[in-house]
Each structure stands twice: as structure tokens, then as C-alpha cells.
Design a protein around this nucleic acid. Structure first.
Lengths: 133, 133
DNA sequence: CTATTATGGACTCATGAAGTCTTGAATAGA
DNA sequence: TCTATTCAAGACTTCATGAGTCCATAATAG
């Protein structure tokens, strides 16, 4: 079980957008160079972030991506959920009669992690952030 | 990102072993019937649990599996780690100069989850456990 | 009109999960 | 000692998903 690299890229891209000038949209080409990943691949993740309402896209020349919300309102969990989906980490595959006690425990544990990620905003790192490379 | 079904089976198998009579080893055939999974597949997971030191195997007639430790000393995390491995959920694939701040946050979150799973013992469910099916 | 930029679908490739099959080793009991 | 039972391990198959490419289409600034 691992987070996908796509999540890794998305988190870094968002960190860049949070630290970048908020008025000017950043084209995917620039982001892709910074992260060392292909444009076409990165654009998949950015599209997901757009659909999740975290960023906004501007087509055409001088276009690109910029934040849609206040940067203080964007949590790690928002980004992770946008890429990985919101399904639970654990789903019992046995057909018990009742609710699965084991599943309840693991989901409870997952919620501890989510709670931390929900409270942690990507902008908190912007101060310490010295550039991607 | 999801826990594997193997982890699901292993947790249920351990719950059964914890509630079963501790003196008599339980053969994989019996466990497999209870869980509704094939013997050969389940035995893979049980072998991992043996290697992790959670249970003990007894070959030959009247053999099977029994707990190796005190049942109060077996946590959810022990079982999950035995099956899934102990690698971190997140590994930054960019080559930064320094440590990755993003990775630090996600690993911190993971540790919240692990802390909960480490404190939760499988035997805590034994009381409420009404059988697998 | 053209260059730039995002969107979306089809596609390939590699990896890992899920599961089977078979062979071999250990041991209890006759 | 022989046999039935039980665990261990490796090779193998199948399928789903992650990772990534390529191309055609749509939107927009100049």
C-alpha cells in the first residue's frame, strides 16, 4: 500500500502554486520543468485538481493554472483526495451478518491520519520552501 | 491506495486464533473454511504471520497454527505490518537537495494512524466477536 | 489567423495483487 | 517403518492499476 507518485507530483505542484504569484496563471510546461516530469502526465493531475475545485485553469495564450481558493484553505487531505479518491483504505471482503468490527478499527485509524492531513495546510510549508529542486 | 485483501484475511484469521482454544493448533483447512477462502492462498498469509513471530506452526497430523505470544500483545499494526511490510506510505520521488517537507508531513500523518493501530489489540474484539460468518 | 495553452480519450508498458498447482519436508499414529 | 496429515515454498497464471505517451480538440490572447 502506497500513495501514488501522482499524489507526490500534485502536492509539489500545489506547493509551487501557493508560493508563486497568485495573479499570473502558471502554465503546465513551467510546472513540469520544475518537477522534472512530462507536461502531458502532469496535466492529468492538474485536471483532477481543477475538478476538485482547488485550482482554476485558464486556456489560451498566457493561460495556465492558479489557485481557486484562499491558500490557507487548502489542506493536504484536499489534494490527496483529489488524486487518490475518497474511498476508504479498508473494505472487509467477507460477508458477515453484521458490521465488521475489524473494519471499524482500521477505518477509525484511517480517520486519525485524515484528521492530521485535514488540519495541515499546504501553505504552512510555503515559508520554509526553498524551491523544488 | 488500499489495504490488500490479504491483510483483511490475516486480521480475520488472527481474530479467530485469538478466540479459539489456545492449546490446540488450528489447521489452515479449518480457517479457510471459516473465512471462505482457499487453503493454499490463506497459507501464504499464515506463513508471513509465522515469520513475523505472531503465530507458530506445527507440521504433521494434528498440526496447525497457534499463537506464539500473549494475545494481549498482538496489535493490529503487528498483523498489518506482517502482511503489507513496514515501508512508508509515501516516498518523495523528486530529488531535492534536502529532506522533503511534504514527505515529512505525510509520514507524520501516517504515524498517527500507526499509533492508533499499535495501541489497538486484536484481542479487544474477541469479546464482541460472534463468529466469522 | 496563429500561436499558445488546457482537456480528453485511446493507447502502451510494467508492476503488483490475487489466486492456483505442485513438490517437498515434518510429524503423529498405526 | 509406513501412511495420512499438515505446513512451506516456488513457479505459474490472470487481472487490475499505476505510470506514462501520443494525438486530436477546444479555448483564447495578440
Amino acid at each position: 500500500m502506497k500513495y501514488s507518485q501522482a499524489t507526490d507530483y500534485a502536492l509539489h505542484a500545489m506547493l509551487y502554486l501557493v508560493t508563486a504569484a497568485p495573479d499570473k496563471p502558471v502554465p503546465v510546461q513551467l510546472l513540469a520543468e520544475k518537477l522534472g516530469v512530462s507536461q502531458t502526465y502532469l496535466s492529468k493531475m492538474l485536471t483532477k485538481l481543477v475538478k476538485a475545485g482547488l485550482i482554476q485553469s485558464v486556456s489560451g495564450a498566457n493561460g495556465g493554472y492558479r489557485l481557486r481558493r484562499n491558500k490557507e484553505d487548502i489542506s493536504f487531505l484536499d489534494i490527496i483526495h483529489a488524486i487518490e479518491g475518497t474511498a476508504s483504505l479498508f473494505e472487509c471482503s467477507l460477508n458477515h451478518g453484521s458490521e465488521c468490527l475489524i473494519q471499524q478499527v482500521v477505518i477509525e485509524a484511517e480517520q486519525k491520519m485524515e484528521q492530521y492531513l485535514r488540519n495541515k495546510k499546504i501553505s504552512e510549508l510555503a515559508g520554509q520552501f526553498k524551491g523544488i529542486g
